[in-house]
Deep mutational scan, measured.
Amino acid sequence: GTEDLKEEAKKALKKGDKERAKRALKKAGLSEDQIKKFIKEVL
């Protein structure tokens, strides 16, 4: 589900894998702006 994808994105970001995080967030249905915001909040 969406929460799982967001968790996956957080883990990817902590490993420095932004591309993987972006893919997971796109799958979760987030827009580009939401993805940028999510990444900023996590990092």
Rank of each mutant, 00 (worst) to 15 (best):
Gly1Phe: 13
Gly1Met: 13
Gly1Pro: 11
Gly1Leu: 14
Gly1Asn: 14
Gly1Gln: 12
Thr2Cys: 04
Thr2Ala: 12
Thr2Gly: 10
Thr2Trp: 14
Thr2Leu: 14
Thr2Glu: 12
Thr2Tyr: 13
Thr2Ser: 11
Glu3Pro: 08
Glu3Trp: 07
Glu3Tyr: 07
Asp4Ala: 14
Asp4Cys: 10
Asp4Asn: 10
Leu5Cys: 07
Leu5Val: 05
Leu5Phe: 10
Leu5Gln: 04
Leu5Ala: 09
Lys6Trp: 15
Lys6Met: 15
Lys6Glu: 09
Lys6Pro: 03
Lys6Val: 14
Lys6Gln: 09
Lys6Thr: 08
Lys6Ile: 15
Lys6Leu: 15
Glu7Arg: 08
Glu7Gln: 09
Glu7Gly: 06
Glu7Ser: 08
Glu7Phe: 06
Glu7Asp: 09
Glu8Val: 10
Glu8Gly: 03
Glu8Thr: 07
Ala9Tyr: 03
Ala9Asn: 01
Ala9Pro: 01
Ala9Ile: 06
Ala9Glu: 01
Ala9Thr: 02
Lys10Phe: 09
Lys10Tyr: 12
Lys10Gly: 03
Lys10Leu: 13
Lys10Glu: 07
Lys10Ala: 09
Lys10Thr: 09
Lys11Ala: 14
Lys11Gly: 06
Lys11Pro: 01
Lys11Arg: 13
Lys11Asp: 13
Ala12Met: 10
Ala12Val: 03
Ala12Arg: 03
Ala12Ile: 04
Ala12Phe: 13
Ala12Tyr: 14
Ala12Thr: 02
Leu13Asp: 01
Leu13Arg: 01
Leu13Thr: 02
Leu13Trp: 08
Leu13Tyr: 04
Lys14Phe: 12
Lys14Ala: 13
Lys14His: 11
Lys14Trp: 12
Lys14Val: 10
Lys15His: 13
Lys15Leu: 15
Lys15Ala: 15
Lys15Gln: 14
Lys15Glu: 15
Lys15Val: 14
Lys15Ser: 14
Gly16Ser: 03
Gly16Thr: 02
Gly16Tyr: 04
Gly16Asn: 06
Gly16Val: 02
Gly16Trp: 04
Gly16Ile: 02
Asp17Lys: 04
Asp17His: 07
Asp17Ser: 03
Asp17Asn: 07
Asp17Ala: 04
Lys18Arg: 13
Lys18Tyr: 15
Lys18Pro: 11
Lys18Thr: 15
Lys18Met: 15
Lys18Ser: 11
Lys18Val: 15
Lys18Leu: 15
Lys18Cys: 11
Glu19Arg: 08
Glu19Thr: 07
Glu19Met: 08
Glu19Asn: 07
Glu19Phe: 06
Glu19Pro: 06
Glu19Ala: 10
Glu19Lys: 08
Arg20Met: 12
Arg20Thr: 14
Arg20Pro: 03
Arg20Lys: 12
Arg20Ala: 15
Ala21Ile: 03
Ala21Ser: 02
Ala21Glu: 00
Lys22Ile: 15
Lys22Phe: 13
Lys22Thr: 13
Lys22Ser: 07
Lys22Val: 15
Lys22Glu: 15
Lys22Trp: 14
Lys22Gln: 11
Arg23Tyr: 07
Arg23Pro: 00
Arg23Asn: 12
Arg23Leu: 11
Arg23Ser: 12
Arg23Thr: 12
Arg23Asp: 14
Arg23Cys: 06
Arg23Lys: 12
Arg23Gly: 07
Ala24Gly: 02
Ala24Ile: 15
Leu25Lys: 00
Leu25Ser: 00
Leu25Asp: 00
Leu25Arg: 00
Leu25Asn: 00
Leu25Gln: 00
Leu25Pro: 00
Lys26Gln: 13
Lys26Cys: 05
Lys26Arg: 14
Lys26Phe: 07
Lys26Leu: 12
Lys26Val: 11
Lys27Pro: 00
Lys27Asp: 10
Lys27Asn: 09
Lys27Thr: 07
Lys27Cys: 04
Lys27Arg: 09
Ala28Thr: 03
Ala28Val: 04
Ala28Glu: 03
Ala28Ser: 05
Gly29Tyr: 02
Gly29Cys: 03
Gly29His: 03
Gly29Trp: 01
Gly29Glu: 02
Gly29Pro: 00
Gly29Asn: 04
Gly29Ile: 00
Gly29Ser: 02
Leu30Glu: 01
Leu30Tyr: 10
Leu30Thr: 00
Leu30Gly: 00
Leu30Arg: 00
Ser31His: 04
Ser31Trp: 02
Ser31Tyr: 02
Ser31Met: 05
Ser31Gly: 05
Ser31Asn: 11
Ser31Ile: 03
Ser31Thr: 13
Ser31Ala: 05
Glu32Arg: 07
Glu32Cys: 08
Glu32His: 09
Glu32Asn: 09
Glu32Leu: 08
Asp33His: 08
Asp33Ile: 09
Asp33Arg: 09
Asp33Gln: 10
Asp33Trp: 08
Gln34Phe: 05
Gln34Ile: 03
Gln34Pro: 00
Gln34Tyr: 05
Gln34Lys: 04
Gln34Trp: 04
Ile35Asp: 00
Ile35Thr: 03
Ile35Ser: 02
Ile35Arg: 02
Ile35Met: 05
Ile35Glu: 01
Ile35Phe: 02
Ile35Cys: 03
Lys36Pro: 02
Lys36Met: 13
Lys36Asn: 14
Lys36His: 13
Lys36Ser: 12
Lys36Leu: 14
Lys37Ile: 13
Lys37Phe: 09
Lys37Arg: 10
Lys37Val: 12
Lys37Tyr: 08
Lys37Pro: 01
Phe38Glu: 01
Phe38Arg: 00
Phe38Leu: 04
Phe38His: 02
Phe38Met: 03
Phe38Tyr: 05
Ile39Val: 05
Ile39Leu: 09
Ile39Thr: 03
Ile39Ala: 02
Ile39Gly: 00
Ile39Asp: 01
Ile39Ser: 01
Lys40Pro: 01
Lys40Leu: 14
Lys40Gly: 09
Lys40Ala: 15
Lys40His: 14
Lys40Asn: 14
Lys40Arg: 11
Lys40Trp: 15
Glu41Tyr: 07
Glu41Trp: 08
Glu41Cys: 05
Glu41Gln: 10
Glu41Asp: 12
Glu41His: 08
Glu41Lys: 09
Glu41Pro: 01
Val42His: 14
Val42Cys: 05
Val42Lys: 04
Val42Arg: 03
Val42Leu: 10
Val42Trp: 14
Val42Ile: 11
Val42Pro: 02
Leu43Cys: 07
Leu43Lys: 05
Leu43Glu: 10
Leu43Pro: 04
Leu43Thr: 08
Leu43Gly: 06
